[in-house]
Every structure is written in structure tokens, then in C-alpha cells.
């Protein structure tokens, strides 16, 4: 069974003469454990697609089923619950909470995933921060960390609750090549160790190199779908 199924998904912004068709009828199946990259030119609909998959937005038409549940028909609170239980997000600009330390940012995500914070879960926070190479810096705040370190915190935050799906929107856009590589390798490792499903949107050819499945999107449609070994 697919982790995610999209059937004839359309997304239109605006009305009348200023209508923008961001997605024009997307059909897509994503299986558990896939490491997928969506690429395409700016304005092609990559981010809109990720927002719909992540239940941050609702489709204008069509169905989105996550583990068989229609996420487009959920209320705002149900969508929030769905996100906290099943989805991890990684953004281009990290979006860490500036007043919390790296450790707290990761623990915060776990705290609001509905799990009761016990000793084991706290150990998991430390473990994952060590795993992304921030064991020594976990008590620093985002403004005391570099861009790459912040993105690693964001990766740890997305992964700590062991979500079914991680959505990463241009995760390497603000990072240098070496740091990008390090962050991507962490995600590849998580994918293989935890069987976590990853979907990236990117312009970065290096990200595409790591992908097991490549989806090209143009003018709101999937124009190319390629499985790789």
C-alpha cells in the first residue's frame, strides 16, 4: 500500500483574471522508505506540491490520501494533529525557534508530537543530535550556530519524532557544498536505518544525485518520473 496517494490534485490561487494554476492535476504514489527528489524550474509547483503533501494547504480539486486518510478533508486541528504525528519538515531557512537551544528545539518537536517525554525520549534527543554531529553544541542557541549546524538541528528536529514522512524544501539552498553533502548523508543514513520516507524539492544537482526517485515538475504537472538504483 502507498504511503501517499495523490489523485487528480489541482491547486489554484486567486480568482477570475488573476487565477494562478499552481498544480493542474497531479497523480502520484509514494511508498514507505522512498528517497524522492522533486525538481523543476521556479514557479513550476514544487513547493505547492510539498505544502499539499504536508497538510499545510488544501487542494482545490482532487484527493490526497495519507495511509488511506483524506488529508484534504481534515479540519485545521486534525491537520495539525496529522502533521505532528506523521510529518517532519525541513526548510531552506531552518526556521528554528530562536529562544530555544538546539537541544530544546529538537525536544520541542518531540514534546508536541503527542509523545510523553520520558528518560528514553530525552536520550533519543541527545542521540540524534550526536548523530548529526552536534553533541558538543546542543546547548547553544541558533544564533550561536553556523548555517550548516542550524540545518542539522532542523534535520534532527524533523527526524526525532520518527515520522513516516520527511518533507525537505530546498534544504541545501543556504549551505555550502561540504555542509550540504554532510546534511544529505545524514538524511540518507536515516532513510536506510529508519526506513523514513523523504521527499525533497530542490534545484541542487547534488541533492538529485542522492535521490532514488526523481520527479520533474513543469507547469503544474509531473513531466518526468524516474526510479534509480
Amino acid at each position: 500500500m502507498s504511503l501517499l496517494t495523490m489523485e487528480g490534485v489541482k491547486k489554484t490561487y486567486g480568482k477570475g483574471q488573476v487565477e494562478v494554476h499552481a498544480l493542474r492535476g497531479v497523480d502520484l504514489h509514494i511508498k514507505q522508505g522512498e528517497f524522492t527528489t522533486i525538481f523543476g524550474p521556479s514557479g513550476s509547483g514544487k513547493t505547492t506540491l510539498l505544502n499539499l503533501i504536508g497538510a499545510l494547504d488544501t487542494p482545490s480539486e482532487g484527493n490526497i490520501l495519507f495511509q488511506g486518510n483524506h488529508i484534504g478533508r481534515m479540519s485545521r486541528n486534525e491537520q495539525a494533529l496529522h502533521r505532528r504525528e506523521h510529518i517532519g519538515f525541513i526548510f531552506q531557512s531552518y526556521n528554528l525557534i530562536p529562544v530555544l537551544t538546539a537541544y530544546e528545539n529538537v525536544e520541542f518537536s518531540l514534546k508536541f508530537s503527542g509523545k510523553k517525554l520520558n528518560h528514553d525520549l530525552k536520550k533519543r534527543v541527545v542521540h540524534i543530535l550526536e548523530h548529526v554531529g552536534l553533541g558538543e553544541m546542543m546547548h547553544r542557541r541558533p544564533n550561536e550556530l553556523s548555517g550548516g549546524q542550524n540545518q542539522r538541528v532542523a534535520v534532527a528536529r524533523a527526524l526525532v519524532k520518527e515520522p513516516d514522512l520527511v518533507l525537505a524544501d530546498e534544504p541545501t539552498a543556504n549551505l555550502d557544498t561540504d555542509t550540504s553533502k554532510e546534511v544529505l548523508e545524514i538524511m540518507v543514513r536515516m532513510n536506510s536505518e529508519l526506513n523514513t520516507t523523504f521527499i525533497f524539492s530542490t534545484h541542487d544537482p547534488m541533492v538529485m544525485e542522492y535521490a532514488k526517485r526523481l520527479l520533474e515538475i513543469r507547469d503544474g504537472n509531473i513531466s518526468h518520473d524516474e526510479m534509480r538504483e
Binding site: 485545521r76 495539525a80 502533521r83 505532528r84 525557534i97 520541542f108
Partner: peptide
């Protein structure tokens, strides 16, 4: 505002 967006993405309800 970005922090609010991130909190919502993390699954915090509006009430929280």
C-alpha cells in the same frame, strides 16, 4: 511570523 508558521508545521494547534 516564520516561527508561528514553523510551530504550525510542527503540529501545534492554534490554541497552543
Amino acid at each position: 511570523i516564520k516561527e508561528i508558521g514553523m510551530m504550525k508545521a510542527l503540529g501545534l494547534k492554534e490554541g497552543q
